[in-house]
Design a protein around this nucleic acid. Structure first.
Lengths: 132, 132
DNA sequence: GCTTGACTTCGAGCTAGCTCTAAGGTGTAC
DNA sequence: GTACACCTTAGAGCTAGCTCGAAGTCAAGC
């Protein structure tokens, strides 16, 4: 188990930000010491690192919460809770995830376009500096 | 030449936003009618559409301004201004663009990772719904 | 027991990026 | 000439996402 300052080192987020995320519900309440200090598990940290990745891709905290809430359910299933219990919502969750996947892939196409554009521009520069 | 409301249709930005971008220097001042109304050229619109793309990728307005300012110089060169005039700064500009390209490619790698993760999750769902 | 340092909460303050309101000007249609 | 749609400006207001300060608690070391 890690303290908040250890988590800041591993994730690049500040302690302020971690507490803020907790306050607004993006992070679930972590365990506490008897004295009340936060204790984060390895899986908490993994979750936070995933969150940071998604943020870098331009997703809002709200979108990330929606996105990863899904993952939590998957974990529950894997940890042995009866999947039949979830089956009614499973198709809905599949739908959400598929939608996200499509969005991510659109984003990637867009990104590829920009990359190609940038490359072309750079080549333009190269030609200029060689010809002149 | 297009009015501001025609530009909102073509770009998806509101008139408020377009004027705001102009105020903070993200967009250059467009032409005006005698009455003072803004008139946007086709190339203005192309520029704005590019801006919107970059925004979707999570770039800040500041980054976009830095990024696209570069393109303006390229256009000047192509329009016949003496490239020798620019040669001293050309290597600097190449450097900036290269840095951006590297960033974009890192972003793409990250995105690919997330896409793979999402696909794996979806497959997990599929197996569950078939097995149970 | 006292200092030190890392933790706590609460709430105020801050930046980016819009979004809107109010008050007024312009231009075309009837 | 007046109604109406559409434009203008300045500046206030708003949300997201932090960021910080103040005041206090707790555990370890001297």
């Amino acid at each position: 188990m890690l303290t908040i300052s250890q988590v800041t080192e591993q994730t690049g987020l500040t302690a302020y930000t971690l507490r803020y995320y907790e306050k607004i519900g993006v992070l679930k309440n972590p365990q506490r010491t008897e004295g009340g200090a936060r204790l984060y598990s390895e899986s908490d940290v993994t979750y936070i690192q995933c969150l940071v990745h998604l943020k870098k891709l331009g997703l809002s905290l709200e979108e990330i919460t929606e996105f990863t809430r899904d993952g939590c359910v998957m974990e529950k299933i894997k940890q042995g809770e009866d999947p039949a219990h979830f089956t009614p919502t499973l198709s809905k969750r599949t739908e959400i995830l598929s939608k996200y996947l499509a969005e991510l892939e659109a984003k990637r196409q867009e990104l590829d376009g920009i990359i190609a554009m940038t490359r072309a521009k750079l080549e333009g520069y190269h030609e200029l500096s060689q010809d002149v």
